[in-house]
């Protein structure tokens, strides 16, 4: 009996609480019912936060994850744990829309949030151009289409300018992008990073790796002999560390020719607007005589 009452009460609470609703399909192909004009947005990944701010909807963000640090204004926002998701903290912030990244967040978490009537929209970025699409999409969802469109156009122009510089380059070094120098986390099949390397005038080594988020073996790298190795450990990364961790790599061309570079991690690991700066940075590293230093 008590269960029946509770179920009935739960059913009441699940009724829409007024305001216009729209049905949209997110990047995971899920159909989600959202408010037509969300006013309280919570982001579940730093890259998503960056997209929302780029789309001109930063003032609608009511909470970000503990990993967020960009743009600097997020410092004053409430923070929640995203891994694992702190559902109670999310509900306490009363968001009317949660934006998630298919790269970091799990659709199971969305099911839990749906049970407490919080809609979750998943965004997926598969390429540099996908960033522009994501910015326009978020602008559309949050009612800031004009700003989002202007920002996307300007980022698109930056990509076009870079493409004009690198398109004619014929000598394209094979490039390995690593997220760590000890354990070799890398980007595998379907990652947006391959489009960054390609635009920067290189050929990505791990583009055809059969898994999406591989941990490479030492012999994988040895067999492929990359000419450039890029590590997302910051510009002050000491390249000699790589040989220290992987002493058999002394004959890998990138190490022999001193072409191991540390790059600003956030420009590469966060699929948001700063990927474009990442592509420029990478292009300068790959082709310093063609592309100006950042």
């Amino acid at each position: 009996m008590l269960l029946v009452i509770l179920a009935a009460l739960g059913g009441c609470a699940a009724q829409p609480q007024g305001g216009d609703l729209v049905l949209v399909t997110d990047d995971l192909g899920r159909t989600v019912q959202l408010p037509a004009a969300p006013q309280r947005v919570l982001t579940l990944a730093p890259s998503v936060t960056e997209v929302v701010f780029a789309a001109g909807a930063g003032d609608k963000v009511v909470g970000v994850t503990t990993a967020d640090d960009y743009p600097p204004t997020v410092a004053s926002l409430p923070r929640i744990s995203a891994l694992p998701v702190d559902f109670e903290a999310i509900v306490a912030l009363r968001p009317d829309l949660v934006l998630a990244s298919d790269q970091i967040n799990s659709p199971q978490d969305a099911a839990t949030l749906a049970a407490v009537d919080v809609p979750v929209y998943f965004m997926g970025v598969r390429s540099l151009d996908g960033v522009l699409v994501a910015i326009r999409t978020v602008g559309g969802l949050l009612g800031t289409s004009a700003v989002a469109s202007r920002v996307a156009d300007s980022l698109g122009a930056s990509l076009t300018a870079l493409r004009a510089l690198t398109d004619s380059i014929t000598v394209r070094p094979s490039t390995l992008l690593l997220i760590g120098d000890k354990t070799l986390y890398a980007f595998g099949r379907g990652s947006y990073t391959h489009s960054m390397i390609s635009l920067a005038g290189g050929v990505s080594v791990t583009e055809s790796h059969e898994t999406t988020a591989p941990i490479l073996k030492d012999e994988y790298v040895l067999a492929r002999r990359p000419e450039v190795i890029v590590i997302t450990a910051g510009t002050d990364y000491e390249p000699s560390m790589l040989l220290e961790h992987h002493p058999t790599w002394d004959i890998v061309p990138a190490l022999q020719q001193g072409r191991v570079y540390g790059v600003p991690g956030d420009y590469f690991v966060r699929p948001g607007p700063r990927l474009i700066a990442g592509a420029w940075h990478l292009a300068w590293r790959l082709h310093p005589s063609v592309v100006p230093a950042p």
Partner: peptide, 12 residues
């Protein structure tokens, strides 16, 4: 071949 040498003798 030095690559094979490292893979076979120093890794495997």
């Amino acid at each position: 071949d030095p690559t094979a040498d490292r893979i076979v003798w120093l890794l495997r």
